[in-house]
Design a protein around this nucleic acid. Structure first.
Lengths: 217, 217
DNA sequence: GGGCGGGGCGGAACTCAGTTCCCCCGGGGC
DNA sequence: GCCCCGGGGGAACTGAGTTCCGCCCCGCCC
């Protein structure tokens, strides 16, 4: 991997052959493909583990957890993996941005994450109306919000705080799709809440007010 | 293309080489790659045109169109393309379902659709708070809803009515994310609106109520 | 200690996608 | 006639990924 990245950064991904890598690393070509099924896999060495981590995390959800919250937290696992090696992640980001083959590979990885989230949500929404549709849409929204936060962090060169941007992005999705879960501060279930808003106020501000009135923040 | 699909259906995609195709078609190998940049492109011959259609459709949006409605309609263009050749689409679906390489290619195509939608939404949401985040999330949600409808239609063998399922799926997204566009029924700007909701009601229902109270539906 | 089986490693050769280079041929202008 | 041009086709090349086989080292059993 070290040899591969040295060459990728020196000459670019496509100008580097597997023979170059194994020659620099001093190993046999056969051994390279033993550890990395394809040349692209060198660039994404940890996604496979992260994917199994995510499915395990979802499978280990205690009963009664709010599903949308859970998938948002699952997405944070990916962000954390990126944040563990900021400089590596940023280098890889620059690489994937300009090599179509790597972008395609990344898409297939992201797709597998999304399917894992969707599968979990489908299980949780089973039986309810439009369950699979809601599961697919929410999974896609979570992935999109996560990617939005991740990319802005990567564009900052890994210097910004990844968690706060992700909290904000995922918070938006969560508040848009999430079910009520927090116990009311002084309210009992069944209480009535009255919200007053001006008609020309922006919708998001009205929603915010509803949320705070309902004790959800 | 006819020769390629005959062989793909007979022996499978991976067991068919480009030499087989050109031998059956009676053309030169060089000519194959003149018309199809890669072997995968034979399977998705019309996506390139559909993508340019979609960008043109979005670019030609009249001023004042509701953005979410517009991207939902843009997604319907893709569905219509599939529906034009049901049997071909179903065959291709079965093929891409079991060939990882074709799935990866399809993902990259879908990604380009999603980026086209997101780019349009980013332009429309420019300046508003969290504009790019909303654009990305909505684009992903629209694509997910479209794919959900498309796949259920494909699984039905192309017999069901594609439009009604798509209308329902996209309608959910549209009502979840759409902006107000209808003029208020009898309210003037500056009027006060009072909304009453039970605390344990699901959030989306509260939001729906706020919207209708504000005359936005 | 000596045979022995298995696993990690390496290399040679192969398949196939995709590219490059060059040729051929037909048509149309000069 | 000659030249130019553009589409088609083939030969040869590059490089990824696979298959097959041989080597060596290590532990294990007799």
């Amino acid at each position: 991997m070290a040899a591969a990245f040295r060459l990728f950064l020196e000459r670019g991904y496509e100008r580097t052959t597997v023979d170059d890598i194994v020659a620099l690393a001093g190993v046999g070509r056969r051994s390279f493909f033993r550890y990395f099924p394809s040349k692209e896999d060198v660039v994404f060495p940890d996604h496979e583990r992260c994917l199994t981590d995510m499915t395990a995390y979802l499978a280990g959800s205690p009963a009664g957890t709010e599903p949308v919250r859970r998938v948002c937290d699952a997405a944070r696992l990916v962000l954390r993996m990126y944040a563990e090696n900021p400089s590596f992640s940023v280098q890889r980001y620059r690489l994937t941005k300009q090599v179509p083959g790597l972008r395609a590979y990344e898409l297939s990885v992201v797709w597998r994450y999304e399917r894992a989230l969707a599968a979990y949500l489908r299980g949780r929404f089973a039986g309810s109306a439009d369950g699979t549709l809601r599961a697919d849409v929410i999974a896609a929204a979570v992935v999109a919000a996560h990617n939005n936060a991740l990319r802005s962090w990567l564009r900052s060169g890994g210097t910004a705080d990844a968690n706060t941007t992700a909290d904000h992005a995922l918070g938006c999705v969560q508040s848009a799709f999430g079910e009520p879960q927090a116990p009311p501060r002084g309210l009992d279930s069944g209480d009535l809440v009255i919200v007053v808003a001006r008609r020309d106020a922006p919708l998001w501000r009205v929603v915010r007010e509803v949320e705070s009135a309902l004790g959800r923040d």
